[in-house]
Design a protein around this nucleic acid. Structure first.
Length: 401
DNA sequence: CCTCCACCGGAAAGCCGGGTCA
DNA sequence: TGACCCGGCTTTCCGGTGGAGG
């Protein structure tokens, strides 16, 4: 494209009609004014938190529900309203929201507490100090201005599974050492999570419990309609589009986030095709695109050793059907390491890497017994045929360099 | 019914690179 | 500078095991 052409391109782009009126509405950070089909939960949470306005300590809350059931949204919405009132009436309440899954920021005990302290204005080194020191700093920050603190720990199960429940124990016990009041709201999408907790921690964390059931197809439709109204220009949605989006999402446990993403991407597809309407076939394309992007993203961001392992699996796949075993993979992997001058990991480690691929859903590995011939994992590739060639080229390039 | 394969997968410990502090 | 801390990645060690074949 020549420079002139590029100017033209941008100009055309600017003038081009879009199906979107306000795309933000479909993005994940958007908090709508009302949350359909969550009235019950909103009310419960509001009831529990309200005492904070009278300077009492609200009970700790444990919230659970599958992904995309509106947990985070509802909590944010409710606390936002609470804060508005508090501000108007001059009541000191501080809400701290932490997502425990965020890598390198709140996924260990040290980092979580450091993050909390940082939010309260203490700047702390990201590493180096004893954990106890970090607690003290946090406590000092909390004590500095006496008030009610509401601590929201999103995806708390991730944190606890990794680091054990001592963090929660320490946090719940902190109230004894301070004049301020700290309430904890734990959000989890694993229902079993509480059962594995230390009984003391469990009883104090789940003084109150709020459950978010999955949405059904009709509810998802309502949500989509509410957002579509704001996000799109008039009359761009072809008949049946919302219904189809909802159906996709309802198919696996009513994940509203996915439904919204699907709708957004479908809009982008329509835009790219200069279509002034979003049609049902755009939905299909969007679904495929989301799937493809996800896998490519996962694969390309893996470290080199992982890519070597995956490449070994893929090269074993052709030729024979779906029965690849750990031992074979390891053999190929070893020779690949030799060829590319990479340090070779132990089989134990490679075995873990295969499990991780399994969890990411790009491979299916189940343990089987071949009787006399030992026990191993039977590995099959879960990448759809349409993306495989692309993945392979990416891997080949990366593996070589 | 027993054996024994070829791994699985938990626990612990080591190494490294990030850092603090006196 | 050296003692010490945290966290991520690996290695070492090792007990455990489903089921085909004897």
């Amino acid at each position: 494209m020549t420079e002139k052409g590029l100017d033209g391109f941008f100009e055309v782009f600017l003038r081009k009609e879009s199906v979107f009126f306000d795309k933000k509405v479909l993005q994940s950070g958007y908090i709508p004014e009302t949350i359909p089909h969550r009235e019950e939960q909103t009310k419960q949470i509001a009831n529990i938190l309200a005492p904070a306005l009278k300077r009492d300590k609200p009970s700790n809350i444990f919230i659970y529900g599958k992904t995309g059931t509106g947990k985070t949204l509802t909590i944010k919405h409710t606390t936002k309203k609470l804060l508005e009132i508090a501000e108007k009436e001059n009541i000191p309440i501080r809400v701290l929201y932490i997502n425990c899954k965020l890598k390198r920021s709140a996924d260990t005990e040290y980092r979580l507490i450091a993050q909390l302290a940082t939010e309260l204005g203490k700047s702390l080194p990201a590493t180096g100090l004893p954990t106890e020191e970090i607690y003290k700093a946090f406590l000092r920050a909390v004590n500095k201005n006496e008030q009610n603190y509401i601590l929201i720990l999103d995806e708390i199960d991730q944190l606890i599974n990794k680091t054990g429940d001592s963090v929660l124990y320490n946090l719940t016990r902190m109230n004894e050492d301070t004049e301020s009041q700290i309430s904890i709201i734990g959000i989890s999408n694993d229902i079993m999570f509480v059962d594995n907790l230390d009984p003391r921690v469990r009883s104090s964390l789940s003084e109150e419990e709020v459950v978010f059931p999955p949405y059904n197809a009709l509810q998802i439709q309502a949500i989509l309609k509410q957002r579509a109204e704001l996000a799109f220009n008039k009359d761009v949605l072809e008949h049946g589009v919302v219904e189809k989006c909802a159906a996709y999402a309802a198919r696996d446990h009513g994940d509203a986030r996915r439904a919204l993403e699907l709708l957004r991407v479908a809009g982008e597809v329509a835009d790219r095709k200069n279509s002034r309407k979003i049609t049902i076939s755009h939905i299909d394309e969007a679904e495929e695109k989301i799937d493809r992007d996800r896998i490519i993203d996962i694969v390309t961001t893996q470290p080199k050793q992982y890519q070597l392992v995956l490449y070994s699996i893929l090269s074993l796949r052709k030729g024979r059907g779906n029965s690849i075993f750990t031992g074979e993979v390891y053999e190929i992997y070893k020779s690949l390491c030799g060829k590319t001058n990479t340090s070779t990991l132990t089989q134990r480690r490679v075995s873990d890497i295969i499990s991780e691929f399994d969890m990411l859903g790009i491979v299916n590995a189940k343990v089987i017994s071949k009787g006399r011939y030992g026990r191993t994992r039977e590995i099959s590739v879960e990448i759809s045929e349409t993306v495989l060639p692309k993945i392979k080229t990416i891997l080949e390039d990366n593996v070589r360099s």
